[in-house]
């Protein structure tokens, strides 16, 4: 595969990462609504569900974290696709420059050579930039995945708290726990898919 195709692969993979994070963000927004509903429920359930109130704050925190991570990753990803698209264009230019047949005049500056060196330098800078940026992106994805592991713990603790609440509220509180657990699984699936797209480039 030519290096130019590599640049195309990069912008495709990174755009996929951004789209996975966008989907994760939508789920996190649902989670935020779940958290608000759970808080109202905890208030209605009264003292028997007091522990749930604290959990809802934690759920809200997780949702905020995912939304922020998605936004950061999206910004990095858009900047990366731009760099990769520039790399693709620069690569194409170099390939075409290589096909130019000419005889440099001895007494004149070889402008094609100067151009070639400048563009090669630019291309190397772009490659370095994208390599650093890809590492950042992977780190951010790994961090978010680690932080989201807490959703399963939150779900278990929610069930424990639900069992302490009065019977009238147990089903609703268990449903909150189910939603948190399901959101965590779905968000992680998108993060995993995003990581797979990135791993193709490494």
């Amino acid at each position: 595969m030519s290096k130019n195709n590599g640049a195309a692969e990069t912008f495709i993979a990174v755009a996929h990462v951004a789209s996975e994070l966008f989907k994760a963000q939508s789920i996190a927004e649902e989670l935020s609504i779940t958290s608000k509903n759970a808080r109202a429920l905890a208030v209605r359930a009264g003292s028997t569900a007091a522990g749930f109130n604290e959990i809802t704050r934690f759920i809200e925190g997780l949702s905020k974290l995912t939304i922020e991570a998605a936004s950061t990753v999206n910004t990095i990803a858009i900047s990366q696709t731009k760099i990769a698209a520039n790399m693709f264009r620069t690569g194409g230019f170099i390939e075409r420059l290589n096909r130019v047949k000419y005889e440099p005049k001895e007494d004149k500056v070889d402008t094609i050579k100067v151009t070639f060196e400048r563009v090669e330098k630019e291309k190397k800078q772009l490659e370095r930039k994208i390599s650093v940026s890809l590492r950042d992106l992977m780190d951010r994805l790994n961090e978010t995945t680690m932080e989201l592991r807490a959703t399963q713990v939150v779900s278990v603790v929610s069930r424990v708290e639900a069992s302490r609440a009065s019977e009238d509220f147990q089903d609703s509180l268990n449903s909150v726990a189910d939603k948190v657990s399901s959101a965590g699984v779905r968000i992680n699936a998108h993060l995993e898919s995003a990581r797979k797209h990135l791993s193709i480039l490494q």
Partner: peptide
């Protein structure tokens, strides 16, 4: 870049 990201 923005278009590819958006359509995906």
């Amino acid at each position: 870049s923005q278009m590819l990201t958006s359509v995906l």
